[in-house]
Amino acid sequence: MEQDFSRLDHLISVHREKEGALIPLLQAVQELDGYLSRPVLQYISDELGIPAAEIYGVATFYSIFRLQPQGKHIVRICKGTACHVSDANGIKAALLENLGLEAGETTTPDMQFTVVEVACLGCCSLAPVIMVDDQTFGKLKPQMIAGILDRFRDAEV
């Protein structure tokens, strides 16, 4: 399967000479593509001369990297301690129900939303909290979820 990776060449050349640049490079590529595909990882390996296994090891070690395509909007559910004791599970259930996701599924079939759990967003005083893209929503109740998601859905039309 021939694919065009020329879009990555600029990023690779920026990072090529720097020490310890693999993680920033993967972050930049993910920013561009939305996720890290297997052929892309192989291409980076060939270009930088780092074994693919090592790159795969790094990409799977850090929670920020995604190896599957993701939805247009990322919904981060905070699972920090303060959120946990303030019913983060109820918020999660409401989110999954609203998006029609079963337990274990993360992305809606229409590729609109990807739901991920994060350790802590650091807004503990507003628990429970979720973040949609770069916007944070706090002091949530399960019934508020539908309204929040609709705002992002509407933005599509």
Partner: peptide
């Protein structure tokens, strides 16, 4: 350096490896 999401990188030797571009 932006961390990439690994709690263990708060440990100083792990943090150093992460800056070096390796698994933390």
């Amino acid at each position: 350096k932006e961390g990439a999401g690994a709690f263990v990188c708060g440990e100083e030797t792990a943090l150093i490896h992460s800056i070096e571009g390796k698994r933390g």
